[in-house]
Design a protein around this nucleic acid. Structure first.
Length: 434
RNA sequence: GGAGAGGUGGCUGAGUGGUUUAAGGCGCACGCCUGGAAAGCGUGAGUAGGCUUAUACCCUACCGGGGGUUCGAAUCCCCCCCUCUCCGCCA
């Protein structure tokens, strides 16, 4: 949620920044301002009438105390007509307010000044590259072939259980997935100073709105219902990312500045309907309806927001460095950024079997946009109530990391060498042929 | 799921239709006092919105949330949420 005061005071600035997203938000800004004006006009008049009514009511009380009943009745009749007008004005202002806020919820965050201007992914500047593409002196397999050969994932039976886009990890595959989760959590906890949390996987609609998933991506979520009670449908959703519950942990709270920075790390499965994405990279593990992810969340002062974003990207990069993977960091341009974000870095890991880079992490500073949506504030040292910056980043997504790992470290005999730091977690140096 | 009790400021705790502008206490900030501190005394302090150059003044709203009755609601009525106790069921 943007600050309504910013829209009032600098509407042209807001329009200009939004225009860089190429999302056609201009008309909404105009409409929000019109509704806001409507609200304030009605509110102002209603408040004056309420002040009048309050003083009249007090007088009536006094008259009744003095037993001047006839006089009191006369005043009552007078005030009653004010009441009708107040009710009407209240209705107008609250309707305008709801309409204004509903519309505000559809306006994305403003891109940070440092973000490159651009229309789509083709305009994303590359920030840095780590490592090089691994060369092979044998014919490398892609992850689907490796998974089948080593019996890491049973694609057919996964589909049999839940339809396409669901994976059944088996044997060493299941073990590798679990080893990676534990490795990632331990890395961020012990080396990077995060606190582990384990959130619910089913979350309320208000949390989805809080992080900006809703209303825009409602079609991408799995809604759940309780048993046979259809009326419960739409109240709870399977989380699309741990960001949804974890960023909301302190919603509607007023934190002390001394509690900041807050750094949380959480593992969760992620559920995404991927409606409309059928046929786009659907084969294999690249785009699935359920995948595991370790998420990083920070709540920090506005002064340190961007510094913390850089650190967060570094934390995610470290995962790939330790695992000996080739990757690049890109900065999403204004037109390619997510809804709630002011600045986003994506980390893409090289997958030799795919011949492409795969997005395994997206680290964003949403500034005060999410904090405002979930009414998360902190009291500054000077006693001022302020909105903190809320950051989120993947540290990292698992299925694609799994793909890059086995494709990169495959050996001529078809087995997969396990990078040294991961070996204690898997209790093996290599994934053997069955 | 059933029955009962409850939800009031940072905390505690009064308040069953009108000097409540939410008492009192604890804690907090500042001041007085003191060699310094404690105690004591005094003053101040919530959130959001509106008006505004203004974090000043003034106005409005806020006692779990929403709606209703009334000239006037923390207080009466209805719906919902949450917490606690007991019972039932259950990994």
């Amino acid at each position: 949620m943007l600050d309504i005061k910013l829209l009032r005071e600098k509407p042209d600035f807001v329009r200009e920044r939004l225009a860089t997203r190429y999302a056609g938000d201009d008309a909404r800004v105009t409409e929000v301002l019109a509704l806001d004006e409507q609200r304030r006009a009605a509110l102002s008049e209603a408040e004056q009438l309420k002040a009048k009514r309050n003083s009249a009511s007090k007088e009536i009380g006094a008259l009744m105390g003095q037993k001047k009943l006839a006089e009191a009745e006369a005043r009552k009749a007078e005030v009653r007509t004010i009441g009708d007008r107040i009710a009407e004005l209240d209705r107008i202002s609250s309707e305008a307010e709801s309409a204004r806020d509903a519309l505000m919820a559809t306006i994305p965050n403003l891109p940070h000044a440092s973000v490159a201007l651009g229309r789509d992914a083709a305009d994303n500047p590359e920030i840095r590259v780590h490592g090089t593409k691994r060369g092979f002196d044998f014919k490398p397999l892609n992850h689907i072939e490796l998974c089948e050969k080593l019996q890491l994932v049973d694609f057919a039976r996964g589909t049999k259980l839940s339809g396409s886009g669901f994976l059944l990890y088996t044997g060493w595959g299941a073990r590798l997935e679990r080893a990676l989760i534990n490795f990632l959590l331990d890395l961020h906890l012990h080396d990077h100073g995060y606190t582990e949390v384990a959130p619910p996987y089913i979350i309320g609609e208000h949390c989805m709105v809080g992080v900006g998933q809703f209303p825009k991506f409602k079609d991408q979520a799995y809604a759940v219902q309780e048993g046979l009670d259809g009326s419960t449908l739409g109240k709870l959703y399977l989380l699309p990312t741990a960001e949804a519950p974890v960023a909301n942990i302190h919603r509607e709270e007023l934190l002390a500045e001394t509690q900041l920075p807050i750094r949380y790390c959480a593992y969760s499965p992620c559920f995404r309907a991927e409606a409309g994405a059928a046929g786009v990279g659907t084969r294999g593990m690249i785009r699935v309806h359920q995948f595991d992810k370790v998420e990083l969340i920070k709540v920090v002062t506005p002064e340190t927001g961007y510094e913390e974003l850089e650190k967060m990207v570094g934390n995610a990069e470290r995962v790939l460095q330790i695992l000996g993977l080739h990757y690049r960091v890109i900065n999403l341009c204004t037109g390619d950024m997510g809804f709630a974000s002011a600045k986003t870095y994506d980390i893409e890991v090289w997958a030799p079997g795919q011949g492409t880079f795969l997005e395994v992490s997206s680290c964003s500073n949403t500034e005060d946009y999410q904090a405002r949506r979930m009414n998360l504030r902190f009291k500054s040292a000077t006693g001022e109530n302020r909105f903190p910056h809320v950051l989120n980043g993947s540290g990292t997504a698992l299925a694609r990391l799994f793909v890059a790992l086995i494709e990169t470290h495959q050996q001529p005999d078809g087995t997969v060498a396990i990078p040294e730091p991961l070996r204690p977690y898997l209790r093996a140096d290599v994934i053997p042929a069955p």
